[in-house]
Simulated assay, not measured.
Amino acid sequence: MTLPTLFVPHGGGPCFFLNPGQAPDPMWRPMQDYLAGLIASLPERPRAILMISGHWEAHRPTVHVGEAPSLLYDYYGFPEHTYHLRWDAAGAPDVARRAAALLQGAGFATAEEATRGWDHGVFIPMMVAVPEADIPLVQISLDRSLDPAAHIAMGRALAPLRDEGVLIIGSGMSFHNLRARGASVTPIADEWDAALTAAVTEPDPAMRAERVAAWEHLPHARFAHPEAEHLLPLMVALGAGGDGPAVRDYRDVVMGWVVSGYRFG
């Protein structure tokens, strides 16, 4: 069975785990509920997850081949307990090397990494989506060029994994401007989100890829993303989604931002 591909929001820092033993922050609860339902929404349970986070860039696409990666607490100013969170899933070296082979077959030079910890773009959403940590995971980096078309091509190269029981997830944020928050931002973010969603859900797959690759020409693009790294995981998920349908399956407002999640295939 062919699995879909996903682009999911990973929240802000350890946002879902700030107050142990208490009800989740109402602002983050819809996103948390969305993430918690991801695995159950799939046609079958994946044997592994391949994840691309907006928090890892490398000079070339790099696959993590570690068998039991540690966690990288790459956020600042949060409660002490959030630097002791655990998500102890196994790595997936076989999937990592299969992904590298697919990328190399498509003309990408690749590298391997075995010691870097999973960043919070991986372990924070996965603590919600796979709380038992019982699905192996491999992380792959962004290419530091941040070229949209190249990342769509990376996704296309990785697409065969969908028929091999591997769930491909891009983890980022559809809006990511840390200097712009509050209700005054929402109308601008809403206009950006509408334009992005129209491009992402374009029925014609070739036109879809063309429109999303040209994201900087959408309204308020550089306001929504002063830097592109949190949007590039969307490109990989879109490319891996192939010619199947594309839908928005999550939308909410957090910190004044309109934030969306997408499903392909």
Rank of each mutant, 00 (worst) to 15 (best):
L146I: 06
D147S: 14
D147T: 11
P148Y: 01
A149Q: 14
A149K: 11
A150V: 03
H151A: 02
H151K: 07
H151P: 01
A153H: 05
A153D: 00
M154K: 10
M154P: 00
G155C: 05
G155A: 07
R156H: 04
R156M: 13
R156F: 00
A157T: 06
A159W: 06
A159R: 14
P160H: 13
P160Q: 12
L161R: 14
L161N: 07
L161P: 00
R162T: 12
R162Q: 11
R162H: 03
R162N: 03
D163N: 14
E164G: 05
E164K: 10
G165Y: 09
G165K: 02
V166K: 07
V166H: 04
I168H: 06
I168W: 07
I169F: 06
I169Y: 05
G170D: 02
S171Q: 08
S171F: 05
G172K: 11
M173Y: 03
S174I: 07
S174N: 11
S174L: 09
F175M: 14
H176S: 10
N177R: 12
N177A: 08
N177K: 12
N177Y: 04
N177D: 12
N177Q: 12
A180L: 15
R181K: 14
R181H: 13
G182D: 11
A183V: 07
A183C: 01
S184A: 15
V185C: 03
V185T: 09
T186G: 09
P187G: 07
P187I: 04
P187T: 08
